[in-house]
C-alpha cells in the first residue's frame, strides 16, 4: 500500500466540474486506484491532508480567505501541486466579478437586489471573507503543473496522472489541450 501515490484534491472557487471529470474516467478509476490512494479529497470527505501527499490537484481559483488557507495547506503538504481546470489556472468564470468592485457585487447581492428583506451584507465569522478579486492559484502559491480545460477531459486527466505517476513529463499532447 505504501508504494501507492498519494493524491489529494480540493475544489476552491470552482464548480466541482473538474472532479466530475475525474470521476468520468469511468472504469479506469479502478486501474487508477491500483496506482494511487486518495488523501484529502471531496471524493472521500477527508477534511485535511494526512501526512504528505505526493500530488495535489486544485480545482478553482482563490476567492476568499478559506480558499487561501486550503491552497496553503496543499502547497505545504503536497510534493507536486497541480492547477486543474480553467478556474484554477485563470480565475475562470468566477473571476468575471473582477470587473466590478467587491462593494458593488455584495450590494447587488444583498442590498439592492430584487426581493431582499432585512438587507445587509452578511458578516458572520463562520463565512469566509471574500478577497477583493478572484485570483488564479499560481498568483498565490507556486504551482508545478497545469492541467487546462473546463473541465479537463477525463482522457486529459487520465493521461496527466498516469504519465506523472510513471515519472514522465505529463505535458498534454495538442489534441488533449482544451480551454473549454
Amino acid at each position: 500500500m505504501s508504494k501507492k501515490v498519494s493524491v489529494a484534491t480540493c475544489s476552491l472557487a470552482g464548480c466541482f466540474g473538474c472532479h466530475m471529470s475525474l470521476l468520468d474516467i469511468d472504469e479506469r478509476i479502478l486501474d487508477l486506484l491500483q496506482l494511487v490512494e486518495f488523501n484529502r479529497s471531496p471524493i472521500n470527505d477527508i477534511k485535511h491532508i494526512e501526512g504528505m501527499a505526493d500530488v495535489g490537484l486544485i480545482e478553482g481559483g482563490v476567492c476568499n480567505a478559506e480558499n487561501f488557507h486550503v491552497l496553503k495547506e496543499f502547497r505545504e503538504h503536497c510534493k507536486i501541486l497541480v492547477s486543474m481546470g480553467e478556474c484554477a489556472i485563470t480565475g475562470g468564470i468566477p473571476s468575471m466579478r473582477n470587473h466590478f468592485t467587491l462593494k458593488d457585487c455584495l450590494e447587488e447581492g444583498y442590498i439592492r437586489g430584487v426581493g431582499i428583506e432585512n438587507a445587509h451584507i452578511p458578516n458572520d465569522p463562520e463565512i469566509p471573507l471574500l478577497t477583493d478579486k478572484v485570483y488564479p492559484c499560481h498568483e498565490v502559491v507556486k504551482i508545478d503543473y497545469f492541467l487546462p480545460g473546463c473541465p479537463p477531459s477525463a482522457d486529459a486527466i487520465w493521461h496527466f496522472l498516469t504519465e506523472l505517476i510513471a515519472g514522465r513529463d505529463p505535458s498534454l499532447p495538442t489534441e488533449l489541450i482544451k480551454y473549454d
Binding site: 504528505m52 480567505a65 487561501f68 488557507h69 491552497l71 496553503k72 502547497r75 505545504e76 503538504h77 503536497c78 510534493k79 501541486l81 468592485t101 467587491l102 462593494k103 455584495l106 451584507i121 452578511p122 458578516n123 465569522p125 469566509p128 471573507l129 471574500l130 478577497t131 477583493d132 498565490v140 502559491v141 507556486k142 508545478d144
Partner: peptide, 24 residues
C-alpha cells in the same frame, strides 16, 4: 481589507497573517 470594511469584521478569521506558502 475591502471585505473587512464592508462587513465590519475584526475577528481572527478576517485576517491572514502569513502570505507565503513554502512548497513542500
Amino acid at each position: 481589507e475591502e471585505a473587512r470594511q464592508l462587513t465590519g469584521r475584526t475577528d481572527p478569521g478576517a485576517f491572514i497573517h502569513e502570505d507565503i506558502a513554502e512548497p513542500a
